[in-house]
Design a protein around this nucleic acid. Structure first.
Lengths: 150, 150
DNA sequence: CCACAAATGCAACAGTGTTGCATTTGCAGG
DNA sequence: CCTGCAAATGCAACACTGTTGCATTTGTGG
């Protein structure tokens, strides 16, 4: 069954795209669906490989880059760099749940743990600087890796 | 005038390299000198372009990668990823002076700016976790890139 | 001074991201 | 329902970043 619309908590990707003021295309809907379904930010390579079960052909590599750029430009997706230097994208709503706490990155296993603490308020910026994102990351060994190393 | 040795506060790069237990080569000395002289982490491309005034020929691209890897492997340099996804290297001692303040990473030009503010104290960690490093990064547009974008 | 392991230089390659251009498509307006 | 146009797509080619293999050179301990 295909719903023609959706609840306020879970709007259809196509509606989000339309509301953002850009054209609703199959590519954009598919990509935004994938980003919203993913529990972690996705790389371009990971998304290129998604057959998505839909009968559609795979998305062109360049088109995927441009779709992602457009989603970022209209605020529906976020772009970040992982530790290997590869861009990763996430749905804009997804990080809201991660914005309010601190992350601990284990240098041993590479795992990311969410801590309860809130990130502290940012300091004053020099004139002309525009803040977009605050990242408070702790690095170290998690309980498991610490036990192994000792 | 060329000093044959140096003070304890400012050891020669060649001595640091020798002390690290790896061969002292012209490439390593030049690169470590550049890293120690730089006020910001340098990208591979930036270092490749350094004529350094010395009469030496430019360093081979691959050799530069390997020199950097070796400096990182023996603890004399640090490797990080900037917001554009390119690796940046810094002398290992340099980050000690960076540990006590906050960084602003420009998502436009990839530049890193040091702010005056101190990083806030880390929150309590779960049992067994060991803290090694605290990173408080702000992301956004620097004054230059902000002016271009507007 | 010599030998050997480490480091270098060169060529070729892989992955990631971008640009130009012709064609297709979403969407608004008749 | 058509039609036009700007936006989006697909394709080819390119640029940049980083890596691997291999022959040659060089630093260093003996």
């Amino acid at each position: 069954m295909v719903r023609a619309s959706a609840t306020a908590e879970e709007p259809l990707s196509s509606e989000l795209i339309r509301a953002a003021g850009v054209k609703v295309t199959r590519g954009r809907v598919r990509v935004l669906d994938a980003l919203r379904a993913a529990r972690q930010p996705l790389s371009h390579a990971e998304m290129e490989a998604l057959p998505a079960g839909a009968g559609d052909a795979a998305i062109d590599r360049v088109t995927l880059y441009r779709v992602l750029d457009s989603l970022v430009a209209c605020g529906l997706a976020l772009k970040a760099v992982d530790t290997r230097g590869v861009f990763r994208f996430s749905a804009a709503g997804a990080q809201r749940q991660h914005a309010k706490h601190v992350h601990f990155r284990c240098t041993g296993c590479g795992g990311v743990f969410c801590l309860k603490a809130e990130p502290p308020p940012p300091p004053r910026l020099p004139r002309g600087f525009r803040l977009q994102q605050v990242e408070f990351d702790l690095r170290g060994l998690c309980a498991g890796c610490g036990a192994l190393a000792s």
